[in-house]
Design a binder for these strands. Structure first.
Lengths: 141, 141
DNA sequence: AGTGAAACTTGAAGTAC
DNA sequence: GTACTTCAAGTTTCACT
């Protein structure tokens, strides 16, 4: 479905999603119009889902990053999933197999904020918290 | 350090990092030049670390997504961290507290690929694998 | 925040396989 | 038909002030 040129375009956009069509075209030896058509196609096919920002959350005032595995109480899974948007601290959440149902990445201002966040989670289930010490690889796909 | 306008610009770029200065300016009532200056400042301060792509990995042929917690064998932590780039399947990796040292998100083509990946990890430590059933919240910051 | 030259985007028309 | 290029008008960027 995707040829080598499409993959080159994707790799360039992975590196810098604000790259211009002209710049991408120069990298891979293609006219800006063609680059644009191929990117349009990738968007239409749903292969490119969006263009996102990578931020330094520490510099934005979020001093703590944690990974939480949450084992939801019986019957609470759907409730929690529907109320996920009430937790702006959660930057990533997955439904996973295993004794814990949800894995999530959370950014918090300080220790007190973490405590308050965990207290809120305790209404839904039983969380296990791992402090993130460093990001070895940032989100890439 | 950051005022309300900066936060509005960040929110707009979070939503679509390819948005033009003109478009962002219209949204928040600012001239394109000022938008550009502020984004430049955010980049220089390291608050904006980059512009990334959100892809549909399933459509790219990666049918399996897993979360792996890895407990490295004694003395293997630094070795593994330095060899992380040998594992293109890893899209995200963190050093975490707890009995497992590393948490990682991995995309794989199929079950056989997962088996081969885990076999490679077994040289460095003891992995615990959780299948990702669904993405409730995609990476946002 | 405004200005203008340079660079980029975008759609249409045209070419090649 | 599909994928690419070229062209020109309209936008955007960027270095000025």
């Amino acid at each position: 479905m995707l040829d080598n040129i499409d993959h080159k375009i994707i790799n360039r956009l992975k590196d810098n999603s604000r790259a211009s069509y002209v710049e991408i075209g120069r990298h891979i030896g293609l006219s800006p119009s063609s680059v644009r058509e191929r990117i349009q196609k990738l968007e239409d096919l749903g292969i490119i889902k969006g263009y996102r920002l990578e931020l330094d959350t520490k510099k934005l005032g979020f001093g703590i990053e944690v990974l939480i595995m949450l084992k939801l109480f019986s019957g609470n899974l759907n409730v929690f999933c529907e109320e996920l948007d009430k937790f702006p601290e959660i930057t990533e959440a997955h439904r996973v197999t295993g004794s814990h149902n949800i894995s999530m990445k959370v950014i918090l201002v300080d220790q007190l904020h973490l405590q308050q966040f965990i207290d809120k989670l305790l209404r839904y289930g039983d969380p296990t918290t791992y402090l993130i010490l460093s990001n070895l690889i940032e989100e890439k796909q």
